[in-house]
Design a protein around this nucleic acid. Structure first.
Lengths: 248, 248
DNA sequence: CGAGCGGTTGAACAAGATCAAGGTCCGTGG
DNA sequence: CCACGGACCTTGATCTTGTTCAACCGCTCG
């Protein structure tokens, strides 16, 4: 809050050069000069409150968004109101890739906590990619990684049973949090049981029951949204065989 | 066959310039000169017999493959043998995009009938993209389209019930076939009931039963792999509400 | 303080999986 | 040519998992 009195937030120019996510986000592998070029393209960051939409399905697509801080869900929803959460995204991850194909966003992106994102105008990213091959290459890799991630979700939804889905979900969260420097085995869920269920193709009651079951077995502790993985090996054991290496 | 006596097949250089899939495949929107450049990159086509692997999960990734003729499935499979079909691909469609992220193929691609593919060495595609912005742009769009497609499959696997999945599957096939000039309502399935089931997250018995049910209702006729859509509107009715516009 | 959202838990129910039997088509070899 | 074996499919009966419906709890926010 104090910041606001010193430097008006809306003029705060972000910079990849000194962003702590440098090694995780788009700039991977760029040198100083290339980083500066990338910085020039990135529009100032945007802040969102919990519950706010970053973009909606059907809106014109112009930019990708990289998460600086916070937590998002993306979801596609059908006319009759059914909603499928297609992903939970945290810092350093990119949103909006599905909009490139038709110049229209194909899903909603909603902040699950107060968040801050960097806006990357896509057309400028495209031309910058032509000048910086390593950026172009990394960009292709990011899109491809999203495809791989989606394939793994398909495997989960198509083949795994409730306990396996939940175990895979918890371990995936844990792994991504720890690669960002947070505790791997002690974290707070940012989403509701219903949102977890939507992502995993389960009803919220099943999510709740399965978490309780894990707790009864002493594998985890559940205190509302606060989760501790007590015996993560047991969770891994559960999904050994149905998963290879989990990207992202 | 006569061709073979005149020009040995293995030296047959393919060419986008006079390929009938020009408007469907990678060259969309290129001019004559750009087409020629793309032709120069495309290695001669490769023929596969039914059942043959085009690539396997874990193999080094070097090229993308565009289908000239034939039909493929892609699948990820887990250590314990569970297999998830992630897609069925027909002429003009691109395979291997998931390999870019790690330089290793993430899934198997298997020909479901005798097929022919064009090999596109990825690194040359990348550099060509820098020279031909419209190619680069189209390439991004293709990758993005794959992400959109995957999201729709997630919606299907996460939210829809057996009948809806089958209906969506049949209509999707129908639509893609018709956009290639084949009959929309009369076609031959290239895959087994088990493969359909794997793709849709159902067991083969459920697929069989559901097809029978559609037939009893007079919506389709089933004669082994020969399917006719008698009342496609009824199938659309069934999924109205759970699907928007179906890409690809 | 009360309303309401989010979560937990129980009981009944249903969709789809599993188990099992039998059928058809097709390629191979006698 | 026919017989045989195997892959693929269909259909029925039973069982299991997860859904649905419902009641209740506890926290948060007007």
């Amino acid at each position: 809050m104090n910041d606001q009195t010193l430097i008006p937030l809306h003029t705060l120019k972000v910079s990849c050069s000194n962003c702590s996510l440098r090694e995780l986000c788009l700039p991977v592998g760029l040198n100083r000069e290339e980083l500066a070029q990338l910085d020039a393209v990135i529009r100032q960051s945007r802040r969102l409150k919990r519950g706010e939409f970053l973009f909606r399905s059907g809106e014109n697509f112009k930019s990708l968004y990289a998460i600086r801080t916070g937590f998002f869900k993306t979801c596609v929803s059908s006319q009759d109101g059914r909603e499928q959460v297609t992903g939970f995204l945290m810092s350093g991850e990119l949103m909006g890739l599905d909009g490139i194909s038709s110049s229209v966003h194909g899903c909603d992106a909603i902040a699950l906590e107060d968040s801050e994102v960097c806006e990357l105008p896509f057309s400028r990213m495209e031309s910058l990619g032509r000048d910086i091959p390593s950026l172009q290459h990394h960009f292709f890799r990011l899109m491809s990684r999203e495809i791989v991630r989606d394939q793994n979700v398909m495997l989960l939804l198509g083949n795994m049973k409730a306990e396996e889905r939940l175990a895979a979900f918890l371990l995936n969260l844990s792994q991504r949090l720890s690669s960002r420097g947070f505790a791997a085995n002690d974290f707070v869920l940012r989403m509701s049981r219903e949102e977890i269920g939507s992502f995993l193709g389960l009803k919220l009651e099943t999510v709740s029951r399965t978490l309780s079951k894990f707790q009864q077995q002493g594998w985890i502790t559940v205190d509302h949204k606060h989760i501790q993985l007590v015996l993560p090996e047991q969770l891994k054991e559960l999904i050994s065989g149905c998963v290879h290496a989990n990207g992202q």
